[in-house]
Computed example of a mutant assay.
Amino acid sequence: MRIIFLDIDGVLNNVEYYKTKSLDSHHIESSHFDNNNINALNKILESTGAKIVISSAWRMLKTLEEISTLFNKVGLNAEIIGFTESLHYKDTYELAPRGLEILKWIKDHHRTLKEGLKNYVIIDDENDILDIQDKHFFQINDLVGLTDEDADAIITFLRSYTIPKQELP
């Protein structure tokens, strides 16, 4: 199975998009998604059959069902199979890096995935990953969000690389 660890803000919406929106529309959840970014993600999903794990902070505000419903409403043809867990350091309660949350999800779930974990990508506008995840990380420019060029690079990587068993935790 191919997995996309997906951030939302800066990936499915962007700075330029928000400049065109009126303040009145900000209370409508579906207005937080740029159709260009949605189309780019749909291109990835259709070309690779990847499933989504939400790594975005949205996972702390909404249930899986609520995000799935919202994605359907904005035309995103995605199968969301889970969320990463929000991890904190014991002593300071400071948030752990997103890469650590992703590593924990992989460790906890890769053996139970149908067909195993074939490959994964992390799509995020912030670089909060671990060094061992570099080749799987696609940093998105939050000024424009996920583009067709990003989508093409992600599709190529998801199709061309298979994780060796020794790389799995």
Rank of each mutant, 00 (worst) to 15 (best):
L130K: 06
E29C: 10
I44T: 03
E167N: 11
K165E: 12
I80H: 03
R111D: 12
N14I: 03
E94K: 15
F83C: 01
K135P: 03
Y93M: 13
M1W: 14
S55L: 07
A57Q: 14
N37P: 04
K19T: 11
M1Y: 13
H26P: 08
D148T: 12
L87P: 04
G49F: 08
S47A: 13
D125L: 06
D150I: 02
A96W: 08
Y17T: 04
S68F: 11
K62C: 15
Y120P: 06
E16C: 10
R159P: 02
Y17I: 04
Q166L: 15
F71N: 08
S55D: 08
K62D: 13
E101Q: 09
D108A: 05
T92K: 06
L103P: 04
M60L: 14
L87S: 05
P169S: 07
Y120W: 03
M60C: 14
I38N: 01
Y89D: 10
I154Q: 00
N13P: 11
N127I: 12
V53S: 02
L70G: 08
N119Y: 02
K90F: 13
L130I: 10
Y17W: 10
K135R: 09
S160D: 06
G10D: 03
K90R: 14
L76C: 06
L117N: 07
A40K: 01
N39Q: 11
L23G: 15
S86V: 12
R59I: 04
E46H: 11
V74N: 09
L130M: 12
S25A: 11
I38W: 01
V53G: 02
R98T: 06
K51F: 09
D142Q: 15
A151H: 02
A151I: 02
D134F: 10
Y18F: 11
N141S: 12
T69R: 13
I8A: 12
A50I: 08
T92N: 07
V11W: 10
D124P: 10
I123C: 06
E29F: 14
S30N: 10
P164K: 05
F157N: 05
R159I: 11
L158D: 00
I154H: 03
L113G: 04
K114N: 14
